[in-house]
Design a protein around this nucleic acid. Structure first.
Lengths: 135, 135
DNA sequence: ATAGGTGCAAATGTTTTGCTGTCAA
DNA sequence: TTGACAGCAAAACATTTGCACCTAT
């Protein structure tokens, strides 16, 4: 059996994880960098990216990518869904405990599904309200 | 009502769309470029990207992004699901006619869902077979 | 003591853009 | 005729990497 290569716990790695785990906002690497500098002023952006890769390989976090610009990261490694507001750009979680996508649907896949990702797009409640008022 | 800015049909735009529509492989911009050069030898990669943006804005195609490397494009603008083989990297469609994700699930979203995207990851049938044989 | 991590800066890879000439309408 | 589009090349942007130094174990 393959041994995982040993990974050290440095203050940089701890801070990257803490920053990510302390927010629900699914931030970008650069946002994490700005926050992490408060704790470790000379941390570098390269270190942020390197530690995000390490945390991904440890399956402690997930990467979310939406085509344009930077990736976003999520400290919740469990399966859950995201809602992206196309007006304000915010990325929100579905309420915890949302039921899984129907197994019958996944069974139609042209292969064996190991994980999946459901991303919804639309208008969040705040933006919807703004649109209603503007009418 | 806002008028859409007029869009011309150039041979470059037609070729970009035809190349994309002629394959089920969800190709990258660069692959489309290589194919398009057969028809229009001095087409440029910039033109490929510009026309893909135009086609996206016309909602005739969709962009698929999987974190690493280049975006992929899909000439099918209708809602459907994708299966990504984590072994060979291939991106496949679910069979047409697959039922939609349950409305009860979408109703839990923290906003009004206008569209959604379901991406499944795992091993495709060919790769699964390879793994079985290797045992 | 030392392997693995860090900061820094340069490199990479993808996508966008400025400019000038061309062509579809 | 003319303004939207093309080709070309440079710029922009996010992310990765090489290297010499540092530090957790």
């Amino acid at each position: 059996m393959l041994e995982e290569k040993q990974k050290r716990m440095t203050k940089q790695k701890r801070v990257v994880y803490e920053v990510l785990a302390s927010t629900k906002s699914h931030p970008t690497a650069d946002w994490i960098y700005q926050q992490a500098r408060r704790e470790v002023p000379d941390i570098s952006l390269g270190t942020i990216y390197r530690n995000l890769q390490v945390l991904l390989s440890e399956q402690r976090i997930r990467e979310l990518n939406y085509g344009k610009g930077q990736s976003r990261f999520d400290a919740n490694p469990l399966p859950h869904y995201h809602f992206v507001c196309e007006h304000c750009g915010q990325v929100m979680d579905f309420p915890i405990g949302s039921p899984p996508v129907a197994a019958q649907l996944l069974a139609l896949a042209p292969g064996q599904v190991q994980s999946y990702r459901l991303e919804c797009y639309g208008l969040c409640r705040d933006c919807l309200e703004g649109v209603e008022i503007a009418k």
